[in-house]
Design a protein around this nucleic acid. Structure first.
Length: 429
RNA sequence: GAGGGUGUAGCUCAUUCGGUUAGAGCGUCAGAUUGUGGCUCUGAAGGUAGUGGGUUCGAUCCCCAUCAUCCUCCCCA
C-alpha cells in the first residue's frame, strides 16, 4: 500500500543535482524555500523586526473572534478538531490572529512600547486546491503593534516592496484603499446596498447572494455586467471619518515620498473583518488577479482579543505564490548547498581512511561528501560534479602510502598532490 | 460547494479508426577508458497503460464508476 499526499498539500524536497536538464518547480524545491525565507528574514531585520513563533493551532473561538464569524474562511474553511479532553481547536487559517493572541498572552507591550514582529509558517484552509491555492499554504508576515502613525503603514508597504525586489520580482502593482472604521463601513454598506438594490435583477446570481451575505464583495465581481452596473457605485473613501481620511492622505503622500508607485483602488476589500483604515494588496501580472500578498491596519483587534487598546498593522504574503511568480518570471533558480569537496576513495583501504579524513575536514568547517557506492572513479567524479563540489579528493593505495591526496579542482581540471595534514587548509582556502 | 480538462517508463511525450511482443528523447546504471567528470558511442534496467467494472472474439483506445491531478467559478495568500 502506498499513501499519497493529502489533497492540497505538496512535498518540498532537495533540488535536483546541478547540471541536470530537468528541474522541479520552485514550489517543490527546498533550496528555493530557504532562499525566500532567508531573504524575508534579512529584509525584516533591516526594518527592525524580530521573529515570533506561535502554535499552528489555537482555540477555535480565537479565529471566530479575530477573523470574523461571517467570513467564509472561518465559516466553512477551517480545519477544526476536538481533543480527547474536549477542547475545540482550529489549525490556524492565517497568521495575524495567533500573533496578536501571543502578544496579549505574553504581555509584550510591557517590554517595549512598539512590537515589530515577523513570522513564517504554515496555515490551513479546507478549500478546493488550485494552482497557488493550497490546503496547507505558507505565509510570511509582519505585524507592528503599538502605534498608529500613517508613516508605519507606508513603511510596511515599503518593506513588502523591498522584499519582492530583493527576490527579483519588480513588476509589481501596489493597490491601497482605506476601509475606515466599523461605523463608516456600516454607513457605506448601507449606501452601497441602496445603490445596488434597484439594479439587482440585472446582476449575476453571485452578486445577488453577496448582496445579502457580504455586500462589499459585490465590488470584486468578475462578471462584466456587474462591473458595468457598479461603475458609478459610491466610494468607500467618501464615507470615511475625518481622521481616517486624513490618515489615508498621509499614507499616500508617504508612499509618494518613498518613490513607491501605487494606485488607489476603491474596490479593494479584504477577506478578514478586523481591518480598519489602510488596506493594501500587492499583485504581479503573472499571477493574474491572485494577490502576491496584502495586509492592513487593525486598530481594534488587540483590544478585541483581551489586550489593551493598541493600534496594529500587518502584512502577509503567500510563499507559494512568491515562488510561482519567480518561476513564471524566469528568475534564476536559487542554488542549493554546494560542497567544498567530494572524496573519491579507491579500494577498501582508502574507503576506511576516508571516513576519518571526511570527519576531520568537516570539523574544520568544510562541507564534505564521500562516495558510498564503491563505483568507478568516473562515476564518483560525476557525483562530485553533480553535488556542486569545488574539489574532488582522490585517495587510493598510492596516496595512503605517501600520506597524501590527489586534489582535483573540478572547474579548471587542475590537480595537486596535497599532504593529508594540509588537506583542510588547501580545500578551505 | 459548481463546472470542465487530463491520467501510457523517474521526467516530457508518441502509438493504436479496438488486433500478435506498447515506442522515443531526457534521466539512471553499466561498458568502451581494471585510477580522472561534463563530449561521443554501445548496451541494460525501468510499464499489471491510475484503479475497478462493463461492452467486445479481443480494450491502453469505447462506456460507467472511482481515485489522482490541473484549470475556471465561489472564496482567498
Amino acid at each position: 500500500m502506498q499513501y499519497g499526499r493529502p489533497d492540497g498539500t505538496f512535498d518540498i524536497v532537495p533540488p535536483v543535482p546541478c547540471g541536470r536538464k530537468e528541474a522541479r518547480s520552485f514550489v517543490n524545491d527546498s533550496a528555493c524555500w530557504l532562499h525566500v525565507e532567508g531573504v524575508f528574514r534579512s529584509v525584516c531585520k533591516a526594518y527592525g523586526f524580530a521573529e515570533i513563533r506561535t502554535p499552528i493551532f489555537e482555540q477555535t473561538d480565537l479565529f471566530h473572534r479575530a477573523v470574523g464569524d461571517g467570513t467564509d474562511i472561518v465559516a466553512k474553511e477551517t480545519y477544526d478538531l476536538v481533543t480527547r479532553g474536549g477542547d475545540r481547536l482550529t489549525l490556524r487559517p492565517e497568521g495575524t490572529a495567533g500573533a496578536i493572541r501571543a502578544y496579549v498572552s505574553e504581555r509584550l507591550w510591557i517590554e517595549r512600547p512598539i512590537a515589530k514582529l515577523l513570522y513564517i509558517g504554515p496555515n490551513f484552509r479546507y478549500e478546493r486546491a488550485q494552482r497557488g491555492r493550497y490546503r496547507q499554504h505558507h505565509q510570511a508576515g509582519v505585524e507592528v503593534l503599538g502605534a498608529s502613525m500613517p508613516s508605519i503603514d507606508a513603511e510596511i508597504i515599503d518593506l513588502a516592496v523591498a522584499f519582492y525586489k530583493a527576490l527579483g520580482i519588480v513588476d509589481l502593482t501596489v493597490k491601497v484603499n482605506s476601509v475606515g472604521t466599523k461605523e463608516s463601513r456600516v454607513a457605506y454598506v448601507d449606501a452601497l446596498k441602496a445603490y445596488a438594490e434597484p439594479l439587482l435583477s440585472e446582476m449575476s446570481d453571485d452578486n445577488k447572494r453577496r448582496f445579502e451575505q457580504n455586500p462589499l464583495r459585490m465590488l470584486d465581481s468578475k462578471d462584466k455586467r456587474d462591473i458595468a452596473l457598479l461603475e458609478n457605485a459610491p466610494n468607500l473613501v467618501d464615507f470615511l471619518d475625518d481622521e481616517s481620511a486624513h490618515h489615508f492622505e498621509k499614507v499616500c503622500s508617504h508612499l509618494t515620498a518613498l518613490g513607491i508607485p501605487f494606485e488607489v483602488d476603491h474596490r479593494l476589500v479584504r477577506g478578514f473583518d478586523y481591518y480598519t483604515r489602510t488596506a493594501f494588496e500587492i499583485q504581479c501580472k503573472v499571477l493574474g488577479d491572485k494577490a502576491l500578498g496584502g495586509g492592513g491596519r487593525y486598530n481594534q483587534l488587540v483590544e478585541q482579543l483581551g489586550g489593551p487598546a493598541t493600534a496594529g498593522i500587518g502584512f502577509g504574503l503567500g510563499i507559494e505564490r512568491v515562488l510561482i511568480t519567480m518561476e513564471e518570471l524566469g528568475l534564476p533558480r536559487p542554488g542549493g548547498n554546494q560542497l567544498d569537496a567530494f572524496i573519491c576513495p579507491m579500494g577498501d583501504a582508502a574507503r576506511d581512511t576516508s571516513v576519518t579524513i571526511a570527519s576531520q575536514l568537516r570539523q574544520a568547517g568544510l562541507s564534505i561528501d564521500v562516495d558510498y557506492l564503491g563505483r568507478r572513479l568516473k562515476a564518483m567524479l560525476e557525483m562530485a560534479d553533480a553535488g556542486g563540489a569545488k574539489y574532488a579528493i582522490v585517495i587510493g593505495d598510492d596516496e595512503i602510502a605517501s600520506q597524501t591526496a590527489s586534489v582535483r579542482e573540478l572547474a579548471t581540471q587542475t590537480q595537486h598532490t596535497v599532504a593529508l595534514s594540509e588537506l583542510a587548509t588547501f580545500v578551505g582556502k
